[in-house]
Amino acid sequence: MRKKTWVLCSVIVLSIIFLFVTAYSQDNIKYVQDPAFTKRMRPAAVFNHDEHNENASIDDCSTCHHFYKDKVKVENETSEDMKCSECHKIDKDPVPLINKYHLRCKGCHEQEKAGPLMCSECHVK
């Protein structure tokens, strides 16, 4: 009886720790999920941040997390702490922002001839 309670407690504690770690860790992103999308048409796109960048040998954060000022890309400046939708705003129509995400991911995959292309490959059910 005692043993059982102990196991249960540890499982709960570990789960909480695990949840906190995953939720707060920038380095362990699993999905692309932008809160700007109020209505979801598809499951969030699968994206293992570190694994992806390692495989794709992307070192420069600004490859994706670019920063623009007056329509000019600012070199050496990145935007990891921002949501894409902070600049690429949704004005009723979500399509332009969706399009930005698709261009960012699928556009690169097409160019590099690597990585998923079809809907179901990223938006896995």
Partner: peptide
């Protein structure tokens, strides 16, 4: 899905 592809 078609709209998104066309937009792209």
């Amino acid at each position: 899905a078609h709209i998104i592809l066309i937009k792209q």
